[in-house]
Amino acid sequence: MSFTLYGAAGSGSVPVEAAMTLIGLDYRVIEAVTWEGEAERDKVAVANPMRQVPTLITPDGETITESAAILIWLADAHPKARLGPSIDDPRRAQFLRWMTFIPASIYSMFWVRDEPSRLVGDDAAAQEQIRQRTAERIAECWRVMDRQITPGRFLLGDDLSVLDLYVAVASRWTPRRARFAIEAPRMAEVVRRVDARPGLQDFWARRFPFDEGA
C-alpha cells in the first residue's frame, strides 16, 4: 500500500515529497492548490478539516498534518535513510528547535501574507503594509537562525536531514533566495548543496523549478 499526500507544487508539501523520494516510499499526490480558492481547499477537507496542505495519509489510514510533524515522523520512522538525528543523538535538541522554529516563526507568516484581507478586509494600503512587514519579519527570522546555527556540509553537520529539505524549500518563498543569501549567507551555502543533490534533480524540476536569483 502507498501513502497519499495532499499537496501542491511549490508549497509546504514539497519538502515532505522530497523526503519521501529520498526514502524511496511509494506515494501519490492529490494536487490541491489551496491558495487559489475554496474549491481547492475543499479537496483537502475530506482528510483535514483545516483544509491545508500538506496532509499525509499513511498506508494504515492514519492522518498526519503539519509539515514539520510529517518530516520529523518520516525521519524517525525510517532511520536507515538517515534524514534526522535519533532521540539519543546530541544534535536532536537543535534539530527539534529549528524544525519547530520554521513553521512557528516563518511559515506562519504566509497565512496572512497570502491573503491580507483575512485581517484587514479590502483596505489596499493596509494589505500592502502587511506584505511589507511580513517580508521583513521573515528576513529577520532567517537572519536570527543563521547567526545561531553552525552548519557543516549541511545544517546539522555532514548528514543531510529533513531540516535541510525544509529550509531549502522555505527559502524559495518570499522574500526569495536573493534576499535569503544576504540575510543567511551560511545557510545559503547549504541550500545550494541541497538544490544540487543528485537524487533530487528530477524532483526539483517537477515540483519546484525556480530562478535562484529571484
Rank of each mutant, 00 (worst) to 15 (best):
D158V: 12
R28F: 05
L155F: 10
A18H: 07
R176Y: 00
E36K: 15
V33Y: 08
G7E: 05
R82H: 12
Y166E: 06
Q201M: 14
T4C: 02
V53L: 07
L96R: 04
L155T: 05
A188I: 07
I64H: 02
S13C: 01
R147P: 04
M99C: 13
K80L: 11
A181K: 10
Q132A: 12
M109L: 14
P85D: 15
E17D: 06
E212V: 07
Q132H: 12
A19H: 04
R28D: 12
L22M: 12
R82M: 09
F210R: 09
D159M: 05
D158C: 13
M109H: 11
S11Q: 03
V46H: 10
D123S: 04
W73F: 14
A104P: 00
A170V: 14
S161P: 08
Y166L: 09
E66S: 00
A68C: 15
A45N: 05
R113W: 09
D60E: 15
G7H: 08
M145W: 13
T150D: 15
E212D: 13
P103W: 04
V112W: 02
R193I: 06
A214P: 00
E40Q: 01
L71Q: 08
L25W: 02
V29K: 05
P59T: 06
R192S: 12
V16G: 13
V120D: 09
L163C: 00
P59Q: 09
E136P: 00
Q132Y: 10
L160H: 01
L5G: 06
T34D: 00
K43Q: 09
A125V: 15
I57T: 05
R197E: 07
T34P: 01
D158Q: 15
S86H: 02
I130L: 13
A69I: 05
L155G: 02
S11A: 10
V112R: 06
L200T: 04
G24F: 03
E31L: 09
G24W: 07
W204H: 03
E17G: 01
A9D: 08
